[in-house]
């Protein structure tokens, strides 16, 4: 975790891989851990420094991707390499989100609206709320990876051709592309209440770096 120029290690020592995927304003971090080939989700509380493993009941693998300020968590799970399904975890209760054969939930707003990616014969981006789902009809090549807490700004990845990626953000009813200066590829994965974006980029020497993008201070209100 990076804040004000300082790095804090949140690895849990029992795992060979720890990937934090989301954080809320209460200092709760979700992500996934692995001792290959098993994957489990996790919830880490920065204040209490507690690490809780998350496993969808009966699942082979569980990935936690997003958390809102109420502590509601979304992600996806697999069972025996069969279908991949999304889930929402509220308190201690898991609820399946099954939009199609392959469903992955990536973000959740303050009121519990979920966004993610689904695949049937083609991949599309969905919104899910109150047990109803909707195809968000993003333009071709756009994959949604994040939603802000208010549900008014989205971010993700645009694939212009196989293997060629650019980040994007949708705010003020416009798409703008996020490309770290001098990068060959930029991918956007997280967004906060201030519309700041994080992700990673590949430089001209094929090295991978994280980044944070802050919108211009004179940006019009959304």
């Amino acid at each position: 975790m990076f804040r004000a120029g300082k790095y804090t290690n949140i690895d849990d020592s029992g795992w060979s891989l720890t990937v934090p995927s989301g954080i809320n304003d209460e200092g709760q971090i979700v992500g996934y851990v692995s001792n290959y080939p098993a994957f489990s989700g996790f919830l880490y509380d920065v204040q209490a420094q507690t690490f809780t493993e998350l496993n969808y009941p009966g699942a082979t693998t569980t990935f936690a991707n997003g958390i809102n300020d109420a502590g509601d968590i979304v992600g996806y799970y697999t069972i025996e390499e069969a279908a991949t399904k999304g889930f929402e975890l509220v308190g201690s209760t898991y609820t399946e989100i099954s939009v199609s054969f392959l469903t992955q939930a990536y973000g959740i707003t303050s009121v519990g609206a979920v966004v993610g990616v689904a695949e049937q014969s083609y991949q599309y981006n969905f919104g899910f709320y109150d047990a109803k789902s909707k195809n968000l009809n993003l333009p071709a090549g756009f994959t949604l990876t994040a939603v802000n807490p208010e549900g008014t700004v989205l971010a993700g990845i645009f694939m212009s051709r196989p293997g060629q990626y650019t980040g994007w953000v949708y705010r003020n009813k416009k798409y703008i592309f996020i490309s770290f200066p001098g990068s060959t590829e930029t991918l956007a994965y997280g967004i906060n209440r201030g519309d700041e974006i994080v992700g990673w980029f590949v430089d001209s020497s094929d090295n991978v770096h994280g980044f944070r993008w802050e919108p211009p201070s004179d940006a019009s209100p959304r």
Partner: peptide
Amino acid sequence: STYCLGIDTKGGLCRVVC
């Protein structure tokens, strides 16, 4: 390599998880 995936808003000094 560093991969950043999440950012919060609290307190003006954002926390970024990577």
